[in-house]
């Protein structure tokens, strides 16, 4: 490391870092405060004075309670989790296979296919969901979790494939060749040599795919109609904006609870995520 003077460190490091932290985290803080503030305190206009603008002395759990009692929130959480996991799994398997094929195998049209897969990523969702609704109807998937588990991979597979392709390319060919000399089949070498050493890359693709599915909104809004089958983002938007007039407390409580599972996944895997990305960006 290049040595710095102390005062300089304040200017180039501590202060900018602090600003970044405030900018990044303040909305979450505000979400949390809003979620525990009683309604009477919540609705103070910008002109009214307030003794405790940035915290509250009477924290309440009424919003959380209301959320869990009057909505199917636990269902939404579970659905989102299940759908995100299954679609991530499907996309990872497809992405690993396709990524390997495109990175390691020689066949005609491989470049074209690679580009084609990438191009599918460009097709906007707002264009697809109406025709997709027809397909979902024809397959009798309407209002079942499978409608989402099978459509989410459409935007996950291209991403996984490309990320893993980059990762696989960085693995030395010799590793595979050694295994082949020892009598492993191509498939066997892929499964037992390439995939295990690519765990960081696979994990980071998986985490990314999981986040994208957790985040998805349009398909879930359009394809799911029963209250118990909704995902968190859709449930929160469609059922918590209500004529109750006072819905912000519950809305923020829902946003907070709905974010915790993904946040946990990340806090466990963030280092893998960085190293995984490191691997693929090298390629």
């Amino acid at each position: 490391m290049v040595i710095e003077r102390k005062w300089k460190k304040w200017f180039v490091f501590y202060i900018p870092m602090a600003v970044f932290i405030v900018f990044t985290l303040f909305p979450f803080y505000w979400m949390a405060v809003t979620a525990v503030r009683p309604d009477g305190e919540l609705y103070r206009t910008w002109r009214q004075a307030s003794a405790t603008p940035f915290w509250t002395l009477q924290p309440t759990l009424e919003h959380f309670e209301g959320l869990l009692r009057t909505t199917a929130f636990p269902h939404w959480l579970w659905n989102t989790m299940l759908i995100a996991m299954v679609s991530t799994l499907i996309s990872l398997i497809c992405g690993m296979f396709a990524g390997y094929a495109l990175a390691r195998l020689k066949f005609r049209g491989s470049e074209f296919l690679g580009t084609a897969i990438f191009v599918t990523y460009l097709v906007p969702q707002t264009l697809l969901f109406i025709p997709l609704a027809d397909i979902i109807r024809d397959l009798h998937l309407g209002n079942t979790p499978w409608a989402l588990m099978l459509t989410y991979p459409t935007f996950l597979i291209p991403f996984c494939t490309w990320l893993l392709m980059g990762y696989f390319k960085t693995i030395p060919k010799e590793l595979e060749e050694c295994a082949r000399i020892d009598g492993a089949t191509r498939f066997g070498a892929m499964v037992r040599i390439i995939f295990p050493v690519s765990i960081p890359g696979i994990l980071s693709a998986g985490i990314f795919a999981f986040t994208l599915s957790w985040n998805e909104f349009i398909y879930a809004l359009i394809f799911m109609s029963s209250a118990e089958l909704k995902t968190v983002p859709v449930g929160v938007v469609s059922e918590l904006i209500r004529g109750d007039i006072f819905f912000w407390g519950q809305l923020m409580a829902g946003a907070l609870l709905g974010s915790i599972p993904v946040a946990l996944v990340y806090s466990f895997f963030v280092e893998y995520y960085v190293t995984g990305l490191t691997g693929s960006v090298k390629g």
């Binding site: 932290i21 979450f28 505000w30 985040n215 909104f217 938007v237 974010s259 993904v262 963030v270 960085v274």
Partner: peptide, 27 residues
């Protein structure tokens, strides 16, 4: 590092609501 990732990982609609609340014309 982990907390810096938070805005990216939580669903857009949920965080957009938090911002809408912070931008609310009255509150």
């Amino acid at each position: 590092r982990a907390s810096m990732l938070l805005p990216f990982i939580i669903p857009t609609v949920l965080s957009a609501f938090a911002w809408r609340w912070m931008f609310d014309p009255t509150f």
